[in-house]
Structures are given as C-alpha cells and as structure tokens.
C-alpha cells in the first residue's frame, strides 16, 4: 500500500511548517503550495494526493476558488479537502462546504483538534 500524501496550501511558510510537521506525525508524506494556483500546478504534475489542507485568504488564488476549481474539474475526486482558516463565520463555512470542502478547521487550533478532524475523515488511528 502506498503512503498517504497530503498537500498543505497556505501563503504563510510558518503555517505550512506547523501543518506539515503535524501531518508527518500521522504518517503523511507532505508537499506544499503557497496559493491555490500553485497547488493546482502541483496537483497536475505530481502523484495523487489524499488530503489537501487549504487556507482561505491567499494571493493569486484563494482557498475557496481552489476548492471550486478542483471539484469542478472532475479530477482528484478522491482527494479530501479540509479548509484551515481564520474565516469563521457560518456563511463562510457553508460556502466552503457547498463548494466541495469536506472539513473545516478554524485558526487558531490545537494539534489535538486537527488530529481529531483527521481521524473523523478516516486518516490516522
């Protein structure tokens, strides 16, 4: 069985580092993208990805547009999408879920909260 692969999409290097480190503890092989367009390019070039953690507010292409682009393309249908963002209003959560996000985590978060969400999505023990 191949390793689980995750893509962390955030314009903050700090947040990519934090999320990447956490995902590695759960067993993911992690790659990074600094905005939605960068992520689409990496998905096009690279191996299949099981999970993408997606920030909302990013330059070039924001997280919501990335989710719409992925779900609208019909590619990567098996990839789970988790928004990880400071945007916490209910309307934002609804918009992300309607666009095709599978989960939503609000910043700031504790490692335990993120790990619990991953377990709920079927990743990790």
């Amino acid at each position: 069985m191949r390793d689980m692969r995750a893509l962390v999409i955030d314009d903050s290097k700090a947040m990519r580092m934090i999320l990447g480190r956490l995902l590695k503890t759960v067993g993911f092989e992690v790659s990074e993208a600094c905005h939605g367009r960068d992520a689409l390019e990496k998905l096009g070039d690279g191996p299949p990805v099981d999970l993408a953690l997606v920030d909302w507010n990013m330059p070039e292409m924001n997280g919501l547009d990335f989710v719409k682009a992925v779900r609208g393309s019909g590619n990567h249908a098996a990839m789970k999408l988790m928004m990880v963002t400071t945007e916490s209003e209910l309307a934002r959560v609804q918009a992300a879920i309607e666009a095709g996000a599978d989960e939503y985590v609000m910043k700031p978060f504790t490692p335990e909260v993120l790990k619990d969400k991953l377990v709920q999505m079927g990743f990790g023990a």
């Binding site: 507010n57 990013m58 945007e87 209003e89």
Partner: peptide, 28 residues
C-alpha cells in the same frame, strides 16, 4: 510567523465583532 500570529488575532477579533456590525472583509 509574526504575520501569521496577527492574521489569527485579526480573524478571531473579526469573528467576534461580525456578530455586532457585519464585518465584510479581512485582508492579508
């Protein structure tokens, strides 16, 4: 990372205030 801390502080404050005044946007 200092910018990310400000981003989180701004996001939480925005969420709290949006209940009262209807915040419309958060920048980078």
């Amino acid at each position: 990372a200092f910018g990310e801390i400000a981003n989180m502080v701004g996001g939480v404050a925005k969420a709290a205030m949006s209940v009262q005044i209807g915040v419309v946007g958060l920048g980078l």
